[in-house]
């Protein structure tokens, strides 16, 4: 999937992946796509909750080699 910006959240625990995602989105334009890579298994539910509550659609989430990869579109 194409993306405009990548956030490396490897090794970070709650709440940093979410807080850093929010900060990364702040510098982006509407409809741009942010790729987030996390190693925190808690971030799977948290990213979905973040997307739902902030209205930024989570386009996909997958597990690749023990890492969690998210694609989020800025609303």
């Amino acid at each position: 999937m194409n993306f405009d910006k990548e956030l490396n959240a490897r090794g970070l625990s709650c709440p940093l992946p979410i807080v850093k995602t929010k900060k990364a989105l702040a510098d982006m334009a509407s409809n741009q796509v942010l790729k987030v890579i996390s190693t925190d298994c808690g971030s799977v539910k948290d990213m979905a909750a973040f997307a739902e509550q902030t209205g930024n659609p989570l386009l996909s989430q997958e597990e690749v080699n023990g890492e969690y990869v998210f694609y989020m579109k800025k609303k």
Partner: peptide, 11 residues
């Protein structure tokens, strides 16, 4: 601090 920073990130 965890709850406050998260809530702020959620708007």
């Amino acid at each position: 601090f965890i709850l406050a920073s998260t809530a702020a990130a959620l708007g």
